[in-house]
């Protein structure tokens, strides 16, 4: 993919969908959002994330989002009918999946810490399709397991991280992910 071959254009909201290969990462982000709303009182819904343009590929006249979907996590009735998007010329399916997961992990690392941050980070790393090496490269942290990487990144002790995981699993059983 030629990263220089991109331009900012306007796209109608109804033309925008998540790229099928970016969907797992997007859905994982949706789950995180609900967990955060459940567990973090500090999260503001009105402006949850720094401003960013959705990155899209143009396929058959529609725009498929591959990253930068933070605006799309909070669909509301007052969402503008037209959004500005960064349109890249093309990306193959494997690239889309990697880009999506890289975006999600990078964004998660920049987010505020909260009661289950380590567990959530660990969960995202487990769910991602990125290889262990790619994750190490992306995060700049080396460790034998993904859980260990999450612990190092969040600077969480083993007992605390296990407690977070059990709390998160309990939340999942209660259905907070939907």
């Amino acid at each position: 993919m030629d990263s220089n071959d991109q331009q900012v254009i306007k796209a109608k909201v109804e033309q925008i969908v998540i790229h099928p290969f970016a969907q797992p990462a997007y859905e994982c982000d949706l789950d995180l959002r609900r967990q955060c709303i459940q567990h973090s009182a500090a999260l503001s819904l009105s402006s949850p994330f720094p401003f960013e343009y959705p990155k899209v590929v143009n396929i058959d006249g529609g725009f498929q989002v591959i990253s930068g979907w933070s605006q799309l996590l909070y669909p509301s009735t007052d969402m503008p009918e037209v959004l500005q998007v960064v349109c890249i010329s093309h990306a193959n399916d494997d690239e889309v999946s990697d880009i999506a997961w890289q975006y999600l992990i990078a964004r998660l690392l920049n987010q505020i810490d909260h009661a289950t941050f380590c567990a959530q980070l660990s969960q995202v790393l487990e769910r991602s399709s990125l290889s262990h090496t790619d994750i190490e490269a992306l995060t700049g942290v080396s460790a034998r397991t993904l859980f260990a990487i999450a612990r190092k990144l969040s600077q969480t002790s083993l007992s605390t991280s296990k407690r977070q995981i059990s709390r998160l699993e309990q939340s999942t059983d209660e259905g907070v992910w939907l």
């Binding site: 925008i16 859905e27 669909p75 939907l178």
Partner: peptide, 15 residues
Amino acid sequence: EYLRSYQARFQFINR
């Protein structure tokens, strides 16, 4: 309420 919340999940995934 559940349906409303569930619907939002599909807005950019499955029209």
